[in-house]
């Protein structure tokens, strides 16, 4: 019998693609990819019905390695492509992997509107607080005061909290996890994929090569250990005082609401519109041109 790790490697990784992958040693992207694959494997989805999309950046390279229908789009626009794919083929399970800059800077508008629209997509946002691939510039999640290659004197702006942003924007399901809590992350991803409607999983991840190094946060081990120390489960955090929560962040499910899903609502629109058009034009139809003759 094959172990799960073997199944993941054998079934889900692309064999004609060169491994090891492009990410730096110890990069959290690989851990997220593992959690994602285990999560999908646990859901018993066929590979043909899964679409994995990405934007640009380190996270953007993930789909290349995975044997789904994969699409590596333009910077920040992955959700827009996914919107088109999902609307064209609603039966597909469409998952997007984005980075923090990809999703909330250049793709910020698409992100909040996908959430508002509540389209049935899953967005996994790997938040490493920097633009890693381009050399460590500050991103929308770079903490105030942090150093980056474009904030050498310390960052003067404030960071987005991606998961809270998604909650406010109206996503059906929002969760946060870290690369330390990989089993928890796998569960969050599974829940997100299972949720109908827009679901977001923000993953706190490490870029020790860019962000960590410049801010003396240590290497991969130290950064990932800090997530273990600073992550508090949502339920537990509710019972903690603000002082106790200083410097910590919550993980777990932040929002899980039932509300109409645009993709499904549109199917109703189609049924309704078809009824009307049949009523209006008894025998004419088929290709739309003839409608103009009335």
């Amino acid at each position: 019998m094959l172990e799960r790790a073997e199944i993941i490697r054998k079934e889900y990784l692309r064999h004609d693609k060169k491994f090891p992958h492009v990410w730096c040693p110890g990069c959290g992207n690989g851990i997220v990819m593992g959690a994602l694959l285990r999560g999908i494997h646990g859901l018993n989805l066929s590979k043909d019905e899964v679409v994995l999309a990405s934007g640009i950046g380190c996270s953007g390279r993930m789909p290349t390695y995975i044997d789904f229908n994969t699409i590596h789009t333009t910077h920040g626009r992955a959700l827009t492509f996914c919107t088109g794919i999902k609307l064209a083929k609603p039966e597909l399970t469409v998952i997007t992997v984005m980075g923090d800059g990809d999703a909330t800077a250049i793709g910020g508008n698409h992100f909040i509107h996908a959430a508002r629209r509540n389209i049935d997509l899953t967005a996994i946002i790997i938040n490493n607080s920097t633009y890693g691939m381009t050399g460590g510039q500050y991103s929308p999640t770079t903490p105030f005061g942090s150093k980056s290659t474009t904030s050498v004197y310390g960052h003067v702006e404030h960071a987005f909290s991606i998961a809270e942003l998604a909650v406010t924007a109206g996503a059906s399901f929002v969760a946060r996890g870290t690369v330390y809590h990989a089993v928890h992350l796998e569960e969050m991803i599974q829940q997100a994929i299972r949720t109908r409607g827009f679901s977001v999983v923000e993953v706190i991840s490490n870029c020790h090569v860019q962000h960590g190094r410049r801010n003396k946060l240590g290497g991969a081990v130290e950064m990932i250990t800090s997530y273990k120390e600073n992550a508090v489960l949502v339920g537990k955090a509710a019972k903690m005082s603000p002082e106790e929560l200083e410097g910590k962040f919550t993980i777990g499910v932040l929002a899980n609401v039932k509300k109409p899903i645009s993709t499904e609502q549109y199917q109703r629109v189609i049924v309704e519109a078809r009824k009307n058009s049949h009523k209006n034009s008894s025998e004419k139809e088929k290709n739309g041109i003839k409608r103009y003759e009335e």
């Binding site: 699409i71 789009t73 333009t74 626009r77 959700l79 827009t80 492509f81 996914c82 919107t83 088109g84 794919i85 999902k86 609307l87 064209a88 083929k89 597909l92 508008n109 698409h110 509107h113 549109y266």
Partner: peptide
């Protein structure tokens, strides 16, 4: 679908096209 801007419109159009 009315998207949030023309960048998104074009993205959605390509996505739908790639989906057949």
């Amino acid at each position: 679908i009315q998207m949030e801007d023309e960048i998104a419109s074009m993205g959605a159009v390509i996505g739908a096209s790639l989906a057949g």
